[in-house]
Design a protein around this nucleic acid. Sequence first.
DNA 1: CTCCGTTTGTTTAATGTTCAAGAAGTGGTC
DNA 2: GACCACTTCTTGAACATTAAACAAACGGAG
Lengths: 172, 172
Amino acid sequence: MKTAPASAPRTEEPRWLTREEQRVWRSYIEASTLLEDHLDRQLQRDAGMPHIYYGLLVKLAESPHRRLRMTELAMQAKITRSRLSHAIARLEKNGWVRREDCPSDKRGQFAVLTEEGYEVLRRTAPGHVAAVRQAVFERLSPEQQESLGEIMRIIAEGLQPDEAGADLPWLR
Amino acid sequence: MKTAPASAPRTEEPRWLTREEQRVWRSYIEASTLLEDHLDRQLQRDAGMPHIYYGLLVKLAESPHRRLRMTELAMQAKITRSRLSHAIARLEKNGWVRREDCPSDKRGQFAVLTEEGYEVLRRTAPGHVAAVRQAVFERLSPEQQESLGEIMRIIAEGLQPDEAGADLPWLR
DNA sequence: CTCCGTTTGTTTAATGTTCAAGAAGTGGTC
DNA sequence: GACCACTTCTTGAACATTAAACAAACGGAG
């Protein structure tokens, strides 16, 4: 792959990544692949579930009455409802989550963290936090941490199906 | 979840993430989830394969004679050999890669990018680069791009099974 | 009240990933 | 050359994810 010519291209010449952009992108891909893998393994070993399932339990634990509507949970976790359905089915089989009907909307379901699920979280959270610390925060300066936060916030924002004000489109 | 007490803990109290660290970590998880998802969808639609498979073709295209030993490719892509085996099997079925025996080591296999595979890459690369640009580089200042690169390099380095000098452990 | 477009959540099948086990080849040692 | 620890790569089964299709309920318009 070569870089685009300096002169004005006749047809829309694709704008490749510069050498520096390529380096950045490659680093991102490598780090995120390794990190996701590392945390998946850590949690599979210590908590018997992949990283994203653990994240679901955390979201529930942080929510009022330790419960969330399926759609709300899917949105918070940035996954599809389909994927969530499968995941909750599995967590339910483990006894860590149970489903409850929503009284005000007969289509709706709550995912509710069970006592047992909360227990798993309490037991495994320290180890997981330690893993995150060791892989990420211990290695970055305060400035880098702040920078990482802002960068990721920007990227996430650009990819959202338009979270804030989505139901108030005329305000935009 | 609450923060650790200020006084010296009697038992090893788990060191939770600070409020700021939590914010950073949450942003990272959200952005990386959304981004991976976005690129997977883009490539599945336009190239008929997930992001990581596309990455494998790129690695091959960049290599001498458009070929790599399986282990080498797995290391470069940061995935297990098992996962690679399955992936190459699929790409082979598509006619985008073929296997070749290694003459100097009868256990060895080369994964070789076919002409057809190269063609797919040539056709779909511009669209993919545009997606990456739009999701990441267009939104970040030059300083942020540089910062992102360095941060990710640090994280990746910390998670490597010790790439450089791994075969020379006495030098460390 | 009925109609109808939308939302909610699940299901199925195809696809991808992981884990553990194993076949085959290598290279060094005795 | 027989042995043995190690490397290379694959396999099969269990598990996870995706995409498309669907049933049920909602809620506003007429």
